[in-house]
């Protein structure tokens, strides 16, 4: 395991996490085939910043007006990435 923590949880106590994906295939604790219930951390939102590094902004409809007039920050603007029908 190349993880951060050298964990060795006992098999009967830990269930591998579902994390909105249903069944987890890669258990960081080496518990393949089990499901971890997240008892202590609830994922509220999965951000996708890591996946947006190379996006072509030519089709993006994010407002490019300066932030203050509509009282929004860049991060607060809703990016309507889907094409309109």
């Amino acid at each position: 395991m190349n993880g951060l923590f050298p964990l060795t949880p006992s098999r009967d106590k830990y269930r591998m996490k579902a994390n909105n994906k249903g069944f987890c295939e890669e258990c960081p604790a080496g518990l393949l085939g089990e499901v971890l219930t997240m008892n202590h951390i609830k994922i509220v939102k999965k951000g996708n910043l890591q996946e947006t590094k190379e996006r072509d902004c030519r089709e993006c409809q994010t407002s490019c007006q300066s932030a203050c007039k509509t009282s929004c920050t860049v991060g607060n603007q809703l990016c309507r990435q889907e094409e309109k029908p």
Partner: peptide
């Protein structure tokens, strides 16, 4: 209330976030 809006899942891409407010560039 605009300042309570934030879109973490479909928010602007990294380019946009790094281009600041856009003044002098896209705007």
């Amino acid at each position: 209330f605009y300042h309570f809006l934030v879109d973490l899942e479909k928010g602007p891409c990294l380019y946009k976030r790094l281009s600041g407010c856009g003044a002098g560039r896209e705007y």
